[in-house]
């Protein structure tokens, strides 16, 4: 049993180690390395459009990873690094686009969809309540009139 578990684990980790393009970079700390990994997973490769530069083997991704590393070692902030790459390759390389007038709709669509849905639900509920109230509510005069009509019908049907 333990052997099977071990084998499965090994197989899993073998996959993991192949998933990332191996670069040999030295980092001062574990945090720096994590920061680097986060950055390269948020940047998109301009050549192989649906991959981030962490996964991509394209030479351009390698250049971009080198630049991210170089700027990190030079003490640049995450924002500065991403901006430097956007200045060269365009907004396209951001997997998380900035919130501005062009991307407003992109970011706002989920909120708009939820709000719209809530409005529709509220509309349906209010309408249902209103018709319910109308169904149960007969005024005393209406009730008397309805009874009169029903009584009259009974008489006619008796005949």
């Amino acid at each position: 049993m333990t052997r099977i578990v071990l084998a499965t684990l090994l197989a899993l980790f073998a996959g993991l180690s192949q998933a990332e393009v191996a670069d040999v970079y030295d980092f001062d700390s574990r945090e720096q390395e994590l920061r680097y990994q986060n950055l390269i997973s948020e940047l998109r490769c301009p050549k192989c459009q649906n991959q981030n530069i962490a996964d991509s083997n394209a030479p351009i991704s390698e250049d971009m990873r080198n630049e991210v590393y170089r700027m990190m070692q030079a003490g640049a902030s995450n924002e500065e690094i991403v901006d430097a790459l956007v200045a060269r390759f365009g907004e396209f390389v951001r997997y998380k686009p900035e919130l501005d007038s062009r991307t407003f709709l992109l970011w706002a669509t989920p909120a708009i969809a939820v709000l719209g849905g809530l409005l529709v639900v509220a509309g349906v509920v209010i309408r249902a309540r209103r018709s319910e109230r109308q169904a149960q509510g007969l005024s005393p005069e209406e009730r008397a009139r309805a009874e009169r009509i029903l009584a009259g019908q009974n008489k006619t049907s008796d005949r």
Binding site: P46, K47, A58, P59, I60, D63, E67, R88, F89, G90
Partner: peptide, 12 residues
């Protein structure tokens, strides 16, 4: 080394 290419945003 492709330095100017990189600054120009050349990707292919």
């Amino acid at each position: 080394k492709g330095t100017l290419g990189f600054d120009l945003g050349v990707y292919g």
